[in-house]
């Protein structure tokens, strides 16, 4: 009897343990994290490491002056090319995809402009409201003049 109970308990525990995150709707990230190096960053790092080796080989007399200059030039160029790619990728990331924070700022701004955002507490309100539904302060549209876009409570 105790064997059967133990078996059932073990099976249930394992099933729950494995399925629990799926049932609770949690998701694991499947994308590269921001702090991980991109391919360009790895290349830059390897070029720098190779540059360090060349410096070491030169300092210990394994590379003569001519080869050293040529190799250093090539590697520095490689590292710089990679660095440019890193920078342009970073710039593209910043400009290309507006983050949630920027969305939020944009939404607040337009709300303030149209008068639906409460100047006192920052909460958003339905269009046409006279008072903030959250803190009770009069909204600017209600206190101010008539709407410029035909909206009864909006101001330009």
């Amino acid at each position: 009897m105790s064997v059967v109970v133990g078996t059932v308990l073990l099976v249930v525990a394992v099933i729950f343990f494995v399925l629990q995150p799926m049932l609770s709707g949690r998701r694991a990230s499947l994308h590269r994290e921001m702090d991980e190096p991109t391919e360009a960053e790895s290349r830059q790092r390897f070029a720098l490491l190779a540059l360090r080796d060349v410096e070491y080989d030169h300092a210990t007399g394994k590379l003569d002056e001519v080869d050293y200059r040529v190799l250093r030039g090539e590697l520095a160029a490689e590292a710089l090319t990679a660095l440019e790619r890193v920078n342009s990728e970073a710039a593209a990331r910043l400009s290309g995809a507006p983050s949630g924070l920027e969305d939020e700022i944009a939404r607040l701004r337009s709300g303030l402009r149209s008068g639906t955002t409460c100047a006192a507490c920052g909460s958003g309100n339905d269009e046409g409201s006279s008072f903030c539904a959250y803190c009770g302060a009069p909204l600017r549209a209600a206190a101010g003049g008539p709407s410029s876009h035909g909206s009864p409570s909006g101001t330009a």
């Binding site: 394992v14 343990f17 494995v18 399925l19 629990q20 995150p21 799926m22 709707g25 949690r26 998701r27 694991a28 990230s29 499947l30």
Partner: peptide, 18 residues
């Protein structure tokens, strides 16, 4: 991996521990 399902991935990782 194929369908980019983060929820299934959590289950897969839990199964390794299990």
């Amino acid at each position: 991996g194929r369908h980019q399902r983060g929820d299934l991935q959590l289950g897969a990782e839990r199964s390794v521990y299990a």
